[in-house]
């Protein structure tokens, strides 16, 4: 187990380097000159001042030299300053991260609360009217973009039924509900489908037939065997969802004015605040990679077949 974790951590190094190199290179695709953008926001200055500023920032140096010093900054926690606020970008992102994490956790919780029972019911009652209704709903949820779901929720829950405030203040605990629900709709739709498939697959296995023939009740089979093996699928799904949650958060936070990293990033994009965008991309990728690593390790731990198969358990 320890050997496996070390191996995975070593594998991570080139990926992390690649992420930083790609994010850094991406920002060079723009036609905007960083110094021009900065000074155009803060009043016009002469070309000499701009040239001096470029030299100070090292922008006149070759690409790889610039990348190297930027990478050095990342390692020491200095990821540059925002063009707009002048504050260190890492600090801005870290102050907004908890709100995004809160939103993600609530939406994951909502997803599980709905998708687990629905997926299992759907599988157990395969072919029935209930199964068809659940499958239809999950298909609908899967075909709606999150911004449409968000606007529909606002329209029905806030405008029509007055159940929830349209734009809650952060002091109101209910303000997390609609953005989290938005993210949970498409995620829940996918999960319901997957959980149904896994449970169906497990129910068709020999050990279930064996248990049934020995007179074990359906409820016990479901809880003891089937759920346990579905857990592995769930872990993989959750890890993959973090990627779409981080992306979805940018849209959903913007719509609901939820003060997280996603909204911060969209604002940074509209004001062409490149250091902030760059740091956002790098950090979101780091988080995604780390969560997936964690899931792989957990997977390894949960499923003895994987462990033995790789021969390093």
């Amino acid at each position: 187990m320890k050997k496996y974790i070390v191996k995975r951590l070593l594998h991570l190094i080139p990926i992390l380097l690649g992420i930083t190199l790609l994010s850094f290179g991406l920002m060079r695709l723009t036609n905007d000159d960083a110094v021009d953008v900065f000074y155009d926001k803060n009043g016009a200055v002469s070309e000499e001042v701009k040239a001096a500023r470029r030299a100070e920032l090292g922008l006149d140096k070759p690409f790889l030299v610039q990348y190297g010093s930027w990478l050095g900054g990342i390692v020491t926690g200095d990821m540059g300053k925002s063009y707009i606020s002048g504050r260190p970008v890492l600090e801005s992102i870290m102050t907004k991260l908890p709100a995004t994490v809160e939103l993600m956790l609530v939406s994951i919780l909502m997803t599980l609360v709905f998708a687990l029972p629905l997926g299992i019911i759907s599988a157990v009652m395969k072919g029935s009217a209930v199964d068809r209704v659940i499958r239809f709903l999950s298909f609908v949820g899967n075909s709606m973009p999150n911004f449409f779901v968000a606007l529909l929720l606002i329209y029905f829950l806030a405008v029509k039924l007055h159940l929830l405030p349209v734009m809650g203040s952060s002091a109101d605990w209910r303000s997390v509900l609609m953005p989290a629900m938005t993210l949970a709709v498409s995620m829940g739709a996918k999960y319901t489908r997957q959980i149904r498939a896994v449970v169906l697959e497990e129910l068709g296995k020999d050990y279930v037939a064996g248990a049934r023939s020995r007179g074990v009740s359906e409820a016990v089979i479901l809880v003891k065997s089937v759920l346990k093996s579905s857990l592995v699928t769930l872990v993989t799904l959750l890890a993959l969802s973090v990627g779409s949650l981080l992306g979805g958060a940018a849209i959903v936070e913007t719509i609901f004015m939820w003060d997280g990293v996603g909204k911060l990033a969209v604002e940074a994009i509209l004001s062409r605040d490149y250091p902030l965008i760059q740091t956002y991309v790098v950090w979101m990728a780091f988080i995604f990679v780390m969560v997936n690593l964690l899931a792989d390790i957990l997977y390894h731990f949960l499923d003895p077949r994987v462990r033995l198969g790789r021969g390093d358990g």
Binding site: G18, S23, G247, Q278, F288
Partner: peptide, 10 residues
């Protein structure tokens, strides 16, 4: 390794 929409937005 990048979350798809995060990369696409940037």
């Amino acid at each position: 390794a990048f979350p798809e929409m995060v990369f696409a937005i940037a």
